[in-house]
């Protein structure tokens, strides 16, 4: 006779097996674990990266240290084939960047992101969400956004092609919080409670807030401004590999990772936090990051004052 165990076995039985992304993620995690193991015979012959960095830093200064660290981190010319040293290194990079991003959300770090949108982009502000891009229907013509994020709170400022501010939007980024939008074009503002996530499929690490990158952009990253989240999973899913290189971005030495669709990510070789991201193929979007201490000046960007004379309107 059937019993309660049979009922329980049918409970949530509809949940499917692992997706391609889940397989890829697991393989990357295993590869990262494998890469952390010292190959036989290497352990005593080659100091670990941190030790080498320290030695070089003492001997030749910080600039040389950065170069030495890159030399340790960067693999040789890419080699093909599954399970190759190159693939292991690639997976290790992705894992390190993921960990750095996860750590940045826990640590006391202010994230500054300057996004240059494709020409003709518009931004739509509405309760619980913000979408942007060339295909968005909105009167807000925006060329650049600047976002400050800190411990779940986030504020985005939008600027027209001429540099004039178009809007400012503040959100706590969590259910039960609040959102505030100031629209400079018609001198209005609105406030709303952050709605609860809809359904169980809502991201668990991120409340509803401002999202850029949704809507099918051919990006190799998913960048969730609302929760200060940048996920670097997609390159492995889309392209199967990333190609570490090296480049200076605004004078800063970075490690360059190339993903699918011509998307690129530059990370700091010291922290693995992103310095720059370019996504979107023919209509690229560039995001520059800075990871800052939570000083009063850096936190000031999170608050949006409503200018005098602006009229309050209901949220859309």
């Amino acid at each position: 006779m059937p019993d309660e165990i049979d009922l329980l076995r049918a409970f949530r039985e509809e949940i499917p097996g692992p997706s391609t992304g889940a397989w890829t993620r697991a393989r990357a995690a295993i590869d990262a674990a494998r890469s952390q193991e010292d190959p036989p015979g290497i352990k005593n012959a080659q100091p670990r990266g941190g030790r080498r960095l320290l030695a070089v830093a003492v001997a030749a200064g910080v600039a040389a240290a950065v170069g030495a660290l890159l030399a340790v981190l960067l693999p040789g010319p890419p080699t093909a084939g599954p399970g190759s040293e190159q693939q292991i290194q690639d997976a290790a990079y992705v894992t390190r960047v993921e960990r750095a991003l996860a750590s940045s959300r826990r640590d006391d770090v202010v994230e500054y992101a300057r996004t240059v949108l494709p020409p003709g982009s518009r931004v739509q502000l509405q309760k619980g969400d913000m979408s942007s891009g060339p295909g968005v229907s909105s009167p807000l013509n925006v060329a650049v956004t600047i976002t400050w994020s800190y411990q779940g709170a986030s504020t985005t400022y939008g600027f027209a092609p001429g540099g004039r501010r178009v809007f400012a939007a503040e959100t706590t980024g969590a259910a039960g919080g609040r959102e505030l939008a100031v629209l400079d074009g018609d001198r209005t503002w609105w406030r709303a409670a952050t709605p609860a996530p809809a359904g169980r499929q809502a991201p668990q690490t991120c409340g509803p807030g401002i999202r850029i990158g949704a809507g099918g952009w051919p990006a190799f990253i998913r960048y969730e401004l609302g929760c200060g989240e940048l996920q670097v999973r997609h390159p492995l899913e889309d392209a199967g590999t990333v190609k570490p290189g090296r480049q200076r971005v605004d004078g800063v030495a970075t490690v360059e990772l190339t993903g699918g669709n011509g998307s690129m990510l530059w990370v700091s070789p010291a922290t693995y936090l992103p310095v720059r991201v370019i996504v979107g193929g023919r209509q690229p979007t560039q995001i520059d990051f800075r990871w800052l201490a939570p000083t009063r000046a850096n936190l000031a960007g999170l608050s949006v004052p409503v200018p005098a004379g602006y009229r309050q309107v209901p949220p859309p």
Partner: peptide, 14 residues
Amino acid sequence: GPALAEDLAAETFA
């Protein structure tokens, strides 16, 4: 849930 399971399953095998 599937989203968190992806992380945990990967971590399990790592």
